[in-house]
Design a protein around this nucleic acid. Structure first.
Length: 564
RNA sequence: GCCCCGAUAGUUCAGUGGAUAGAACGAGGCCCUCCUAAGGCUUAGACGCAGGUUCGAUUCCUGCUCGGGGCACCA
């Protein structure tokens, strides 16, 4: 919402050499100074005059319409007192009109996006560290869809690893097993492989058979990875993550386009067979300047492919699907690897996805470690969140049916879990602590939901509220004005999030909006407002706030319950 | 050792090349005959260190310190 464009236009019209783009608006430091402030630094530089002089000139010479009641100069700033009623009506009307699309800038219209995220190895249950990938990816998907992009979500199933080979050896009849049992068997198989070289060797033999596409082996690998994937997806579904396409690593074993890559590498003399008969890429020949990560192994001596080799094929495949934007969500431990892949494919003229990196979630004790038993499983995290939410819902919502209560419990638990992770910028490490991650008070998802529930409660009691904004819209208090300005800033926040491919600012915005609403809630009675006109105006402001919060939470994959 | 990220209140996080750097948790003191106290009000409390660029730097650059991640035969 370009709220102050008419003010900017008036200035640009009156003063030659200034364009609206040179004018930056911001809230003044103290509300009594005005409703909005203009900074004149950039425009003054352009005109070659001191900023305070330009500010004075703007206040003196520019005529503004009835929207501006008063201008004041404070050094390099021009402060405007606005006709709040005009702005309030404009803001609320635009929220209610846009509805579920309020805040969207339609920047993605007509564009297709392919994004890969999560892609957990099958032999593990998602833990909160891995879940950060899924939540960040899923939120970016929601954000881009909101902006009008046509998004397809891919999940890469690593069904070719040594760990799957070991599972195949140890699970002759996998259909009889639960996901948890398979995970237990994997841990034991891994231990056995370390203790018995002969057993480990049998695992590698299976990989060779897999490479040769031996039908029986392929069948066995598929059966077990399918079961694992189903187990993983059941957990991921609980936090609302979903995927459109599942790509099997084993389908990218012998991609003809890999030959193009090898040919390009050979031409640049960047591929060689080392003393142990492995096929290796020398990235120094492709412009890689450091020793670190200089060599990239494609094939083992026995001719079987390494993971990276299959990933090259898979990446080519994804890039060939014709999306306008290709994204991949990766842990920061994959940075060097992704650079290597980009360099190799770049040498053959192929592009690579734009990475979205995130840092690790650790524990106070350090890294999460399966062996030390210090991983926090996503399913345990959710279970605990639900049991805490259930306690609260039992005492607060006794008049609701068990089904309705169960639904609220789930929504609150997801809100706590997703918000705790998404509100932190992805490039920051997170130290996981049960108490703060499961908190429902303070800067949390449930706090935002709570303000939504309060709005819903007011509107239930208020009864019929006119659908459209009336001719008059009184704005009596600072709290109302602050809330209006907060709503008006949503689209800008969304645009910033899209540009950064980062949903953390959305979470921050939701929190700020909820807090701003709560101040309004305490200071401005709706149902008991002095005049009917004011009651209706405030009720509509409530509706607009709920719509905005609902949209912001929606981008994070969090529901806005009517009751909680 | 080299490369990539980070460093803001006791703690967990926001934020910005420009007017007085925001929350929350924790600590102290208050508020439910008042639209949901999962709330509010109130007190105390912070830009790692040293240079540089700039009219102006917590923000940009360099160095240092500390923390996280990475560094070919795993996936």
């Amino acid at each position: 919402m370009d709220l102050f464009k008419s003010i900017a236009a008036s200035i640009a019209d009156a003063i030659p050499g200034i364009e609206p783009a040179d004018l930056a608006f911001a809230p003044p430091p103290r509300p009594e100074m005005g409703d909005v402030a203009l900074r004149t630094f950039d425009a003054a530089r352009k005109l070659g005059c001191p900023p305070p002089q330009l500010a004075a000139r703007i206040a003196r010479e520019v005529g503004f319409g009835p929207e501006v009641l008063e201008t004041g100069v404070a050094g390099p700033y021009v402060n405007f007192k606005l006709n709040r009623e005009v702005y309030a009506r404009r803001i609320v009307a635009s929220v209610l009109e846009a509805g579920d699309a309020f805040g969207a800038n339609a920047s993605g219209a007509g564009q297709r996006v392919l994004i890969e995220h999560t892609s957990i190895n099958p032999n593990a249950s998602p833990h909160v560290g891995r879940a950060r990938n899924a939540m960040i990816g899923d939120a970016v998907v929601r954000l881009l869809r909101f902006e009008g992009y046509d998004v397809e979500v891919h999940y890469y199933v690593n069904d070719m690893g040594r760990q799957i080979g070991l599972l195949v050896l140890e699970c002759p009849d996998p259909e009889q097993l639960s996901f948890d049992q398979i995970l237990d068997i994997y841990v034991k198989a891994n231990q056995r492989a370390e203790a018995e070289p002969e057993f480990a060797a049998r695992g590698y033999e299976l990989l060779v058979k897999m490479e040769e596409k031996d039908p029986e082996t392929v069948e066995k690998f598929h059966r077990i990875t399918d079961l694992c994937l189903r187990g993983q997806l059941a957990v991921l579904e609980r936090i609302g993550a979903s995927y459109d396409v599942f790509d099997r690593e084993s389908d990218y074993l012998r991609d003809a386009r890999l030959e193009q890559v090898l040919a390009a590498l050979r031409e640049k003399d960047a591929v060689f067979t080392d003393e142990d008969d492995r096929v290796v890429v020398d990235l120094a020949k492709l412009g890689h300047e450091r020793d670190e990560g200089r060599y990239f192994v494609l094939m083992r001596a026995n001719g079987s492919s390494m993971y990276g080799c299959r990933d090259l094929s898979y990446t080519i495949h994804k890039m060939s699907l014709g999306a306008d934007l290709n994204l991949i969500v990766l842990g920061e431990d994959h940075k060097l690897y992704a650079e290597q892949v980009a360099l190799i494919l770049g040498a053959a003229g192929f592009a690579t996805p734009e990475p979205i990196y995130y840092a690790y979630i650790t524990l106070k004790e350090g890294k999460m470690s399966t062996r030390k038993g210090t991983v926090v499983l996503l399913s345990d995290f959710l279970d605990e969140a639900e049991s805490r939410a259930a306690e609260k819902v039992e005492e607060q919502c006794q008049d609701l049916s068990p089904d309705e209560r169960r639904e609220i419990v789930k929504q609150v638990a997801i809100a706590a879990v997703r918000f705790a992770i998404l509100r932190v910028n992805p490039n920051k490490n997170v130290v996981f602590e049960w108490e703060s991650a499961l908190s429902f008070t303070g800067d949390t998802g449930p706090y935002v939901q709570y303000s939504c529930a309060r709005i819903a409660s007011i509107l239930r009691k208020f009864g019929d509220c006119p659908e459209t904004v009336g001719d008059t819209f009184p704005v009596e208090t600072a709290a109302e004005w602050a809330l209006l300005m907060q709503l008006a800033s949503f689209a800008g926040v969304v645009a910033g999030a899209v540009a950064q491919r980062n949903c953390a600012p959305i979470a921050q915005y939701a929190l700020d909006t909820a807090r701003t609403f709560t101040t309004f809630y305490h200071e401005c009675p709706v149902i008991a407002a002095p005049t009917r006109e004011q009651q209706v105006a405030r009720a509509q402001l409530c509706r607009a706030t709920r719509q905005t919060l609902q949209n912001a939470l929606g981008l994070l994959g969090i529901a806005a319950p009517e009751r909680m």
